[in-house]
Write a protein that binds this DNA or RNA. Structure first.
Ligand SMILES: [Mn+2]
Ligand SMILES: [Mn+2]
Ligand SMILES: [Zn+2]
Ligand SMILES: [Zn+2]
Lengths: 142, 142
DNA sequence: TTCCTTATTGATAACGATTCTCAATTTCAT
DNA sequence: ATGAAATTGAGAATCGTTATCAATAAGGAA
């Protein structure tokens, strides 16, 4: 039998004493369904509302916090005062953000891994991650 | 006569129809005095409180917003849900942040300017800035 | 100076995102 | 089925930030 992403996430949760409740499953589904988007808690709440109006916003926040703790999602912010989340089992990447319309383009860059190691040595830091954000105006907004 | 930083900032403000009021001057002074720190609005408010208890927190926020608009300070966030500010007339740099104690180390990297241009061409973006943040644990916290 | 227009201020209310509280419900191992 | 522990939804609370507004300050013209 194959192991689906949801199975892996279930194990991950249970290994840490958490249960994969129906509500949590719906939230994970929403994140997986919009893999390349960067959904906020409220975005997810709004999406779920359609078919599952009984789920509360507090549960969405609580679940995202657990998913983040377990490294299942990355929490990021594009300086709008809202946290956004993306499924973490994707190629590591960075973001190019339009300051006018908020459009986000993803890109990769290998060189930063080397820089990370160099700085770890230099400053005696144990580095666990990095994120490069570029700001500007997209073709439509400039 | 020499042109001080404050003079330059005054011109900058007046060119845009803003006045350099005593309150604004106190706030700019605080930012300049702690050049390499990353002060929040509340940090500044607390500092000013000692000698200028009449300044309101709203004025601090308003002033920082103007300084940001004019490019006199950079607004940044280390994902604690608070905006922090630094005097922008410094060498362009990036940040290494300790996830435990919040310690911030600054570092520079020239290569990113080239990357910026490459991406600008590739995605037809007019890039106005970028910021690299590395996360980890400092020597004391790891 | 005096007058007038406009900018700025401090206090405080309002806001929006997030977290907390708590009683009710669900889950899971027994 | 039973009971302990986890989870839930609703709503209150929190916290950083922004908006409102009447009072004050600033700067230019007379
Ligand atoms: Mn992304
Ligand atoms: Mn800095
Ligand atoms: Zn755009
Ligand atoms: Zn530390």
């Amino acid at each position: 039998m194959e192991t689906t992403e949801m199975d892996q996430i279930r194990s991950r949760l249970e290994d840490h004493g958490y249960r994969l409740t129906p509500q949590r499953m719906r939230i994970v589904e929403a994140v997986l369904a919009e893999e390349d988007k960067h959904l906020s808690a409220d975005d997810i709440y709004t999406i779920l509302r359609e078919n599952h109006p009984e789920i509360g916003i507090a549960t969405v926040y609580r679940t995202l916090e657990i998913l983040r703790e377990l490294g299942i999602v990355n929490q990021l912010t594009f300086e709008e005062g809202v946290s956004r989340y993306e499924y973490s089992a994707r190629e590591h990447h960075h973001h190019l953000v339009c300051l006018k319309c908020g459009k986000v383009i993803e890109f990769s860059n290998d060189e930063l891994e080397r820089l990370e190691q160099k700085l770890a040595r230099k400053y005696d830091f144990q580095i666990v991650g990095h994120h490069l954000k570029l700001y500007g105006y997209c073709s439509l907004c400039q």
